[in-house]
Simulated assay, not measured.
Amino acid sequence: MSDILKQEIKQLIIDSLDLEDITADDIIDDEPLFIEGLGLDSIDALELGLAIKKRYEVKIEANSEQTKQSFSSVNALAEFIQQNKAQ
């Protein structure tokens, strides 16, 4: 997985969710994004999903189990984007 892609995802999380007190270095690649870990919620998931869809042109199924797993961490998001990115 590309470290550049992971950094982009971290910055996208910060920018799209207006996380002012956090830097990309504060987000750990395999740390959970929701509840524990970064502490995001369902509204954050919607906003982040829209930002990822727009930036990387990937299709995201709203209520699928695969999507839930793909949004579990930066590593999982990077893998999802690499697999589904428009060519």
Score class of each variant (00 low, 15 high):
42 S>Y: 00
1 M>E: 13
9 I>M: 02
4 I>M: 09
6 K>V: 02
60 I>R: 03
23 T>P: 00
29 D>K: 07
40 L>I: 07
72 S>E: 07
5 L>G: 10
57 E>R: 15
5 L>D: 04
43 I>K: 02
20 E>T: 10
79 E>A: 08
68 K>H: 02
63 N>R: 11
11 Q>G: 04
9 I>P: 07
38 L>N: 03
83 Q>N: 14
67 T>C: 02
41 D>H: 13
71 F>Y: 14
61 E>P: 00
19 L>N: 05
23 T>L: 09
19 L>D: 03
4 I>C: 12
38 L>E: 02
79 E>F: 05
12 L>D: 07
52 I>E: 01
87 Q>A: 09
4 I>L: 14
16 S>E: 15
14 I>K: 03
73 S>T: 15
28 I>W: 03
68 K>M: 07
41 D>F: 11
23 T>G: 09
48 L>Q: 11
55 R>L: 04
13 I>D: 04
51 A>G: 05
30 D>K: 07
77 L>D: 00
56 Y>G: 06
82 Q>W: 10
76 A>W: 06
30 D>V: 10
36 E>H: 12
65 E>H: 04
84 N>Y: 14
81 I>N: 11
85 K>N: 11
66 Q>P: 07
80 F>N: 01
71 F>V: 10
27 I>N: 04
15 D>G: 04
44 D>I: 05
31 E>C: 12
17 L>Y: 01
41 D>G: 09
2 S>A: 11
52 I>L: 15
60 I>M: 08
38 L>M: 03
4 I>E: 14
27 I>R: 01
65 E>L: 12
55 R>A: 14
69 Q>Y: 08
57 E>T: 12
5 L>V: 06
26 D>C: 06
85 K>Y: 12
2 S>K: 14
8 E>C: 07
70 S>Y: 04
19 L>W: 09
9 I>T: 03
14 I>P: 05
35 I>K: 14
16 S>V: 15
85 K>I: 11
36 E>M: 08
79 E>D: 10
4 I>T: 15
71 F>N: 06
64 S>W: 02
86 A>Y: 06
29 D>Q: 07
49 G>V: 05
38 L>C: 04
64 S>M: 03
24 A>M: 00
22 I>E: 13
64 S>H: 07
67 T>G: 10
59 K>M: 09
76 A>R: 08
53 K>F: 00
10 K>N: 06
3 D>T: 09
31 E>Q: 15
17 L>A: 01
29 D>R: 04
45 A>N: 09
70 S>V: 08
6 K>M: 10
65 E>G: 01
72 S>Y: 07
22 I>Y: 14
12 L>Y: 03
75 N>L: 09
76 A>F: 01
68 K>Q: 03
24 A>T: 02
72 S>D: 09
58 V>W: 02
68 K>G: 05
66 Q>W: 11
58 V>L: 03
61 E>F: 08
84 N>I: 13
28 I>Y: 06
71 F>M: 13
75 N>W: 03
12 L>F: 11
30 D>P: 01
46 L>M: 11
73 S>N: 10
86 A>H: 12
31 E>R: 05
43 I>S: 04
38 L>D: 01
73 S>Y: 08
15 D>E: 14
57 E>Y: 05
39 G>I: 13
36 E>Y: 02
66 Q>S: 15
72 S>P: 02
12 L>H: 01
10 K>P: 04
3 D>C: 06
75 N>E: 08
63 N>V: 12
51 A>R: 04
